[in-house]
Amino acid sequence: MTRFSWFNATALTLGFAFLYLPMIILVVYSFNASQLVTVWAGFSTRWYGEVLRNEEFLNAAWVTLKVAVISSSIATVLGTMAAYVLVRAGRFSGRTLFSGMIYAPLVMPEVITGLSLLLLFIGIGLDRGVLTIVLAHTTFSMCYVSVVVSSRLISFDQSLEEAALDLGCSPFEAFRLVTLPIIAPAVISGWLLAFTLSLDDLVIASFTTGPSATTLPIKIFSAVRLGVSPEINALSTIMIAIVTVGVITASLVTKQAAVRQARDEQLAERPL
């Protein structure tokens, strides 16, 4: 039985205060009228105006968004394929290497991934820019997608796929009509994960980009190296707001989908 305990209540209060206070302070100070970030001089939305008028930020945001959408979409396809191979394809030569290559990028320091990809791009003479960032982001985020999707693939009943095959579906039809709808929530959260990883990434993008493409994290990093600025506070607040809304919406949608699916599965299991 759970009892109210002062220890637990204190741990939760202090813990969540620690996790959230810095962000709340950042958000509050983004509405500060003063140029000096640590001195409160009244409420103002001036810095938001500055951010939205700043061409460089807008261009960088556009590049970042483009890279994130393209790389997370390719990563979702490749990652789902990889998960399917890992869970369903059985034995094939080189399977150990394959699963090693799926798990290794998850623990690889970003500086190493970035450096190695850059050396490859230079080696084959590929011009660095949006394309190279997309290739780099796709590579590491497909591994995250495949981990998310494979955990769902492991947990669902394989006999459903077999039934579809027995009833005359081609393997591809069985995948499209049976497997994909079941693993869809995992595929969607895989895409979201890949998308945010790409939006966030500073280190790998810095290594693999050229002068033609600057992403938002690169822009922010070079700005904050010089110190705290109210403009960056406003930009950060916009990003935090987008992520918060996105994550909460996504979790509500997937929760609903999970509830519906559980109900469907229950109905399907009931004897006729």
């Binding site: 302070i25 950042l26 970030v37 966030d200 922010i220 904050v224 705290v228 506070n233």
Partner: peptide
């Protein structure tokens, strides 16, 4: 889910 960079940056001001 929020940017790592922003979370680190938040501490600079504090």
């Amino acid at each position: 889910w929020t940017s790592f960079l922003i979370r680190v940056y938040a501490w600079m001001g504090i």
